[in-house]
């Protein structure tokens, strides 16, 4: 089970530069619009929850992680920073494993 500390999402820069750069490339290619690492992807006029699912699939495949359970919150995908931080955290083997 996840602990409540998992719920804290960094509001500042998070995750490795390489992950951030790759995610910005993916977003730009997919939406044909420039994005910044702190831009709110789901703010009005932004992207749909269907697109959030696409991000989940992209992160899982690109980084060999499994985004399950409590991590499946829109908040974790709201900015490139948050996604990069999520990738960093899930790439560390969790105690007990994540069942994958």
């Amino acid at each position: 089970m996840t602990t409540s500390s998992d719920r804290a999402v960094p509001e500042t820069a998070g995750g490795s530069d390489a992950v951030q750069a790759e995610l910005l490339r993916f977003l730009t290619a997919r939406t044909r619009k420039p994005w910044t690492a702190d831009a709110d992807l789901f703010a009005s006029g932004g992207l749909s929850s269907l697109f959030a699912m696409e991000l989940v699939v992209h992160l899982e495949r690109t980084y060999g992680i499994a985004i399950r359970g409590t991590d499946l919150r829109l908040e974790n995908f709201r900015t490139v920073w948050r996604m990069a931080a999520l990738v960093d955290r899930l790439r560390q083997p969790a105690p007990g494993g994540r069942g994958e």
């Binding site: 089970m1 996840t2 719920r7 929850s49 269907l50 959030a52 699912m53 399950r68 359970g69 409590t70 991590d71 499946l72 919150r73 829109l74 908040e75």
Partner: peptide
């Protein structure tokens, strides 16, 4: 609660509906 709950309603629905 699956995965402790607290996910977004829209992501929960989108996940199952896929």
């Amino acid at each position: 609660l699956l995965g402790d709950g607290g996910q977004s309603l829209s992501l929960l629905a989108t996940t199952a509906l896929t």
